[in-house]
Amino acid sequence: MNYPLSKNGEWLEFDFQDKKKIAKVARNIPEGEDWLKEINESNKNNLKIAITSDYLHVRGSLIYHQNSQKENEYKVFHFYTCKDFFITVGLEMNDLKQKNKMLHRMQSSRNGVENFCILLSEITNRFLVRIDDFEVQLKNIVGKLQRNNNKNKLDQIFRYRQKLITSKSLLIPMEELINAIEETFLNEVVKTLEFNRVRLRIKRAMTLVQHYQEEMETLLHLEEAISSYRGNEIMKTLTVITTIFTPVMALGALWGMNFKHMPELEWKFGYLGSLILIFVSTIAIYFYLKFRGWTGGILKERKKKSLF
C-alpha cells in the first residue's frame, strides 16, 4: 500500500507479500540490494546507517510488539529512511489507533525523516497507553497485597514484572534508532519539531518504565520480606508449641509403656499426680520461654490491616 503524503517525504508502505514491488524499489535506492537481503534474512531488531558525500540514510528492522509470555510471538517491520522519502515493510497499520491524525501531521512535514519520526512517535504512544494500564494494575496488586498475601499474588507480581521488562526491551532499540537518526542527519533533523517530540516521548516512556520497574522491584523485596517473616513466625510457633508440650509427650510415652513391673501403676494418687506434674511442667516451660523472650509476638493477636 502506498501513502503519498506530500511531494517531499513520501511514504512507501508494503506488505511482506509485495516482494516484486519491494525489489523494484530497492533497485533504485542506494544500498537497496543490501537492504532487500536484510529484509529476506533478518526478522529481529537491526540497524544500519549510511553516511557518504552522495547520500544519507538509516535502515533496519524494528520489533514494535512482543508477547511477554511467548517469546516467539512478536511483530516486526523493516524501514529505509532518507531525506526525500521513507519506506516501511510489514507494518500493520491497524495497530496504530491514531492513524488518521498521524497521516494529517505528515502532510505538513518537510521531508521523509520528519515523517518517519511522526511514525515512531505514534508507535511510542502505544507503549505509553500500555504503561498507563500497567499503572492501574500495579495499584490493584498493591491493594490486594495489603489485604492478602499468597502465592497467587506473587505470581501476578512476576507476570507484571515480565511485562515491564518486555516493554523496556522494545523501547531500547527505538532509543538507539532515534540516536542513529540524529547521528546521520545532524542539524537537518535535530532542530525539527517532530524529531524532538519523538525523542522526548521515547525518553518519557523509558523514564516511566524504569520508575515502575524500580517500584516493582521494591514490591518484590517487600513480598520476600513478608514471606520470610511469616515463614520464620510459623517455624517459631511450631517450635514453641513443640517445646511447651514436650512434658505431655515425654510423660505420656513413659506411662504408656507396657512393662510388667511399673511401680507407678500401683500408686493410689498416681493418676492425679501425673496430671499435676504434666500441668505444672507445661506451665513452667511456657513461663520460662516467655521470660527469656523466645515467644516473641507469636502469641499476640494479629492486627487486621497488618501485612505481617
Rank of each mutant, 00 (worst) to 15 (best):
I141F: 06
G143R: 07
G143L: 13
G143A: 11
G143K: 09
K144G: 06
Q146F: 09
R147T: 11
R147V: 09
N149H: 11
K151F: 13
L154G: 15
L154Y: 08
I157E: 02
I157R: 03
R161M: 05
R161F: 10
K163D: 08
K163M: 06
S167G: 05
S169V: 02
E176M: 03
L177P: 01
I181E: 00
E182D: 04
T184N: 00
T184C: 01
T184R: 00
E188N: 05
T192P: 01
L193A: 06
L193G: 05
R199E: 00
R201A: 04
I202Y: 02
I202M: 02
K203E: 03
R204G: 05
A205R: 02
M206F: 10
T207K: 11
L208D: 08
L208N: 10
L208W: 05
Q210N: 12
H211P: 06
Q213V: 09
Q213N: 07
E214I: 12
E217R: 08
T218L: 12
L219D: 11
H221S: 15
H221V: 14
H221W: 13
L222G: 09
E224K: 11
A225S: 11
S227I: 11
R230S: 12
N232D: 14
N232C: 14
E233K: 09
T237A: 10
L238I: 10
T239A: 08
V240H: 09
I241M: 08
I241C: 12
I241E: 12
